[in-house]
Design a protein around this nucleic acid. Structure first.
Length: 572
RNA sequence: CGGGAUGUAGCGCAGUCCGGUAGCGCGCUGCGUUCGGGACGCAGAAGCCGGGAGUUCAAAUCUCCCCAUCCCGACCA
């Protein structure tokens, strides 16, 4: 491809609305442009990268035995009503009507659509196992799209759904995907950390997320340096400290005028935050519940929601807090009897002589002991693990890192096959529900993650597997014969089947080199002075600073060798 | 949805406090000189100053309303 005939609108300055490197670089390098919030245009160069990522995903999915489909984006409301998610999906699902007022969703995911398709097509155990996938656009009305193509309203996802006769089959399908995912991300040139994960609104049991470690990641991961325990904070467990051996004090009331927050209380009582029991009022599906956790701990709403079995969970407004506790916000506690459901973190009963709100304005209780002063009726793990907490498996102190979720695999179970009544006949002619697994990869998010992990101060450093071109040929030619020679070079490289971008623009060399660095094609070939005078062609890898000079006739062989070397580093 | 900020040429920004003919840098077009790490000169094109309403002789600038974008939080595969 000739640069002069291509369209690569590189920018010298950072766009004002891009906060993370991958977003900045993808816009500056002319890969994408913003159309509006959460919607992006893929320019030709960006499209090439996207296609390479898609090709890798498709190859590995096909290799795993999965079958590619293409599903409608418009999914009829009936399907969603069948599974019950028309209600539970909430406002993130785009809902539209056609001219006859029939309702549809712009698919945010395709469990229903695939289950329905398989239901109507497959009727025998002989057709299973089946892993059906597609690479298609998804729509989500994100509360806050951000970070460019990392979180957008419209994004490309590879989603796969496996159907097996039994749990053993599902396990095999799941493991096949685990392997395929590791290969896919390795081939894309990114390091991922597979972590245990929450299954979210999809429902299910075993679940693994593939995270790209990144400062700007939206997920928090807990990693044990000793054993292999790795989990998303949404789900990470941790061991609670042993209770201190303390004699129980008398329960007493303390006047605490205007002391509400844990920080204020710690200062007022001159003790550490873990001495307090923090009591928060939530609305679980609209019903008030109280959650009690140690004062130095954050409530984990994902865990709480799951513990409560709730679909919707939100912090209750002040008015509800007041009507439940009969006190202003800041003085809630578990000691008095309420007729609201109260759930405690599993550590609550180990805290002796705690301080809690007294459910009266400006009063707290001190010397509170679970079991004596209030009964722990329900206890769950409802607090978030954090750096330094002890690993649930081996007891070592865990580390915290941030990550970007690029892939997610999990065992779905029977949720959709039962709710939508998908059955096949087994060997004995009996109708059984297949068991499902679900496997997603954020394709354009993966592309962003590649950049997030591969750049320097000058621009992107594409791994050769997803680079828009393999070779960036920079022609620095003045005279007509030089221009012709550079052109000839381009023709011969291209004729040899190497993917080459030829910068034939009539601009100064500085601009060409700066653009080459910014765009980040892995191999740069320069034909200039040294070529026209000494027949020496310069080869420079984007990741390295050395320049290798080769003679004309060696060039193609050398390029093939480098391409092969670069590619072999990324093979699974 | 709460808190904060910003909307002025394709991009990055000044001008707004204190009302008086729309500016700078980059990019773009033409001509010339340059030509191995973002060259230079000359000449150009390009803006309903986010939208609406108001105040005023006069509004990018003041007032009110709306919209959009970004950041933090809440929320979310």
């Amino acid at each position: 491809m000739k640069f002069s005939r291509y369209l690569v609108p590189t920018l010298k300055e950072d766009p004002s609305d891009a906060s993370i490197m991958s977003h900045r670089l993808m816009i500056r390098a002319g890969l994408i442009r913003k159309e509006s919030a959460g919607m992006y245009i893929y320019l030709p160069l960006g499209m090439r990268v996207l296609r390479k990522v898609i090709d890798i995903v498709r190859e590995e999915m096909d290799r795993s035995g999965a079958l590619e489909f293409l599903m409608p984006e418009l999914t009829s409301a009936d399907l969603w009503k069948e599974s019950g998610r028309w209600q539970t999906m909430g406002p993130e699902m785009f809902r539209i009507k056609d001219r006859n007022s029939l309702e549809y969703a712009l698919a945010p995911t395709h469990e229903e659509a695939f289950t329905n398709a398989v239901r109507s097509i497959v009727s025998s155990y002989r057709d299973l196992p089946l892993n059906a996938y597609q690479i298609n656009t998804k729509f989500r009305d994100e509360i806050r799209p951000r970070f460019g193509i990392m979180r957008s309203k419209e994004f490309i996802m590879k989603d796969a759904y496996s159907f097996d006769m039994d749990k053993e089959g599902l396990e095999q399908s799941y493991q096949a995907m685990r392997r395929a995912y590791r290969t896919i991300f390795k081939r894309c040139g990114i390091e991922t950390i597979p972590v245990e994960a929450d299954t979210g609104s999809m429902g299910g049991s075993d679940s693994e997320e593939f995270m790209v470690a990144s400062e700007v990641g939206e997920e928090v991961l807990l990693l044990c340096p000793e054993c292999k325990y790795k989990a998303n904070q949404e789900r990470a467990e941790y061991q609670r400290p042993e209770p201190a051996n303390e004699a129980a004090e008398e329960l007493r009331t303390v006047e605490t005028p205007d002391v509400r927050t844990i920080d204020e209380l710690a200062a007022f009582f001159n003790c550490s935050a873990d001495r307090f029991l923090k009591s928060l009022i939530y609305l679980a599906d609209g019903v008030p519940v109280m959650a009690v956790v140690p004062g130095n701990r954050e409530i984990n709403e994902v865990k709480l929601k799951k513990a409560l079995g709730a679909n919707e969970l939100e912090l209750a407004p002040d008015s509800v807090v007041q009507s439940v506790t009969k006190a202003p916000v800041g003085f809630a506690g578990p000691v008095n009897e309420f007729n609201v459901r109260t759930v405690c973190d599993i550590s609550v009963k180990t805290i002796h002589n705690a301080i809690t709100g007294a459910n009266q304005k400006d009063r707290h209780f001190a010397g509170v002991n679970a079991g004596r002063d209030f009964i722990v009726k329900e206890e769950f793990d409802i607090t978030s693990a954090k750096a330094g907490d002890t690993c649930p498996k081996c007891g070592s102190a865990m580390n915290e890192r941030r990550g970007i979720e690029v892939g997610h695999i999990f065992k779905l179970g029977y949720k959709y096959t039962k709710s939508m009544n998908l059955t096949v006949l087994d060997e004995k002619g009996k109708a059984v529900h297949p068991i499902m697994g679900c496997y997603g990869i954020g394709v354009n998010r993966t592309m962003a993650a590649v950049v997030e992990q591969n750049y320097d101060e000058k621009g992107i450093l594409w791994p050769i597997s997803v680079a828009p071109f393999h070779v960036h040929l920079v022609g620095i030619a003045k005279a007509d014969d030089e221009i012709a020679a550079a052109e000839e070079m381009y023709t011969s490289i291209r004729a040899s089947g190497i993917d080459v971008l030829f910068d034939d623009r009539r601009v100064s060399p500085g601009i060409k080199f700066a653009d080459a660095d910014l765009i980040g094609i892995p191999i740069r070939v320069t034909v200039g002075k040294s070529f026209f005078q000494n027949d020496e062609i310069e080869i420079k890898l984007r990741r390295q600073s050395e320049i290798v000079k080769v003679r004309h006739e060696e060039l193609l062989t050398k390029l093939r060798t480098i391409i092969e070397e670069e590619a072999s580093r990324l093979r699974g």
